[in-house]
Design a protein around this nucleic acid. Sequence first.
DNA 1: GCGACAG
DNA 2: ATCTTGTCGC
Length: 271
Amino acid sequence: MSAVPPQNLIDEWTSVQASLKQQLVEGDTEEWQRAPDFKGLERVGGVDLSFIKGDDINACAQLVVLSFPELELLYEDCRMVTLSAPYVAGYLAFRETPCLLEALQRLERTQPALMPQVLFVDGNGVFHYREFGVACHLGVLSGLPCVGVAKNLLQVQGVVRSEEHLTQISELKKGGDSFPLKTASGRVLGRLSALPSALPRPRPPAPGPAQFGRQHQARVYVSVGHRISLDTAVRLTQRCCRYRVPEPIRQADIRSREYLRTHCPSAHTCG
DNA sequence: GCGACAG
DNA sequence: ATCTTGTCGC
């Protein structure tokens, strides 16, 4: 199905990452980022892609903008896209970034006043093999402050699922607890953060099938995408989480999935 | 050879 | 990413 890219393309991607990385800004650049309750922050965005079972090139690309701090829907854009690059760990941006940039451009063209002041991205930022994940990539190319939020651990630069890592996880007690993800050389690339318990959740606490796979705990890997500090990124993530993942990403996920359910010819034709 | 492999 | 969908506790 998905062809493995030739090494020369991987090499090119690697050098593009190194080149764009020079424009990466890792600290806070906005007033609201330093303000006690994020005063001045009014719009938070989220992006995601959803797929159909046997098809990994056609996808639904979704952008949502929510109000802050209410987290109510202000804008939504959904579009079927054809992806040109396969998924390769470490190069996710080359697969997902083009259609997400287009979604941002549509927003800029039609409703510029609704442009989000920060964008949550499904995937890592600097918590990456070459410290330039999809959240950095999209951040630099769009110019928007971005936060990378991953649900699964990417083992990079000596950050591994070791005994120590598992111990640190078990030591996350309260909602909002977190610990740094440190490189072998001591550099902090991100934080593993537990779901805060302060934000009101609509109905039941956390439903979930008990018999499929292991029950993921309510934690996410947060890292800097662009134009935000790690501390601010973690604080903001916690303020935007009703469930495990920040509401903008969750809404983008739900809505793109829903779109596929209703707009796609039933994907399971027998025969 | 073995394991890892964001989405 | 995609697929499983039951069942425990408030």
